[in-house]
Design a protein around this nucleic acid. Structure first.
Lengths: 148, 148
DNA sequence: AATGAAACTTGACTTGC
DNA sequence: GCAAGTCAAGTTTCATT
């Protein structure tokens, strides 16, 4: 088990902040901003990746412009011995997955989906159910957003 | 208020899915997977960015290592004839409610809670349960955030 | 920390629908 | 005109020293 903030030094933090702003920034450019050579920046990021602090990189989409206004929460039940990493690997494939958590209780994971309409939603849920390691699911379609 | 998938074609969608998996994937590599030249891929991404569909790129960090608070999802079951407005009025009182939705299915609402620790979480859930109009609840504590 | 080869990015120009 | 392809110059990545 890792302790919060592990051994991130100040350079790591500045570097991660920069990557948070632009996940595609080149190592060279980041290096200029944190006073490090591009090579040193790459080594640090590789190390953060290996330590699990950095899980990966992704694109930030505007859900409204995608027209995906139909939402649902899906409780996912996995087969025995399905690790969170495997669940993540399965869910990553779907751009409709807006968020996902592993949880305590009956289900193993809770998935927040965004789709264009109920047809699209149904389709995604079908495809998620067919992922290896995933046994069944239980869905709740969002009627309205109250808070948040 | 229907915003159908704007003018995203199938190539755009595959391209965005790929970027979702790896926001630092090179244009060349994406191109191989969607059968386009690297230049064409870049032009599409630039266009999606200009249209606001793509907001940017970011690094995905492990929340455990960043000192995030304890979270839970609570399904709330109401008494008959409890309106969404009444549910909202009840939930509004709690600053621990990060988000809330009315949903289809067994439960009436789904509530996303953020607390400092499990003790705090327990306390909030207790207080929500005592709200008039709310009958019972079913909680899942978040173990880890996978996506989002 | 520096080098160099391979890969990537990016703009200008060309082709084809 | 619009979107894709080709080419070439300039950068960046990455293994090695």
């Amino acid at each position: 088990m890792s302790t919060p903030d592990a051994d991130l030094d100040d350079v790591d933090r500045r570097l991660l902040r920069r990557l948070g702003e632009d996940g595609r920034a080149s190592y060279a450019r980041i290096g200029v901003e944190v006073n490090l050579s591009a090579t040193a920046v790459k080594r640090r990021i590789d190390r953060l990746r290996a330590r699990g602090v950095v899980r990966g990189f992704t694109v930030v989409l505007d859900p409204r412009l995608l027209g995906w206004s139909t939402e649902a929460f899906v409780e996912v039940y996995c087969r025995e011995r399905t690790s969170p990493e495997e669940i993540l690997a399965s869910l990553r494939k779907f751009p409709e997955v807006a968020a996902a958590w592993t949880v305590t209780g009956d289900a193993d994971a809770l998935v927040h989906l965004r789709a264009s309409d109920t047809r699209h939603l149904e389709d995604v849920i079908e495809r998620i159910r067919r992922e290896p390691g995933i046994q069944r699911s239980r869905s709740s379609v969002v009627l309205s957003r109250l808070i948040g």
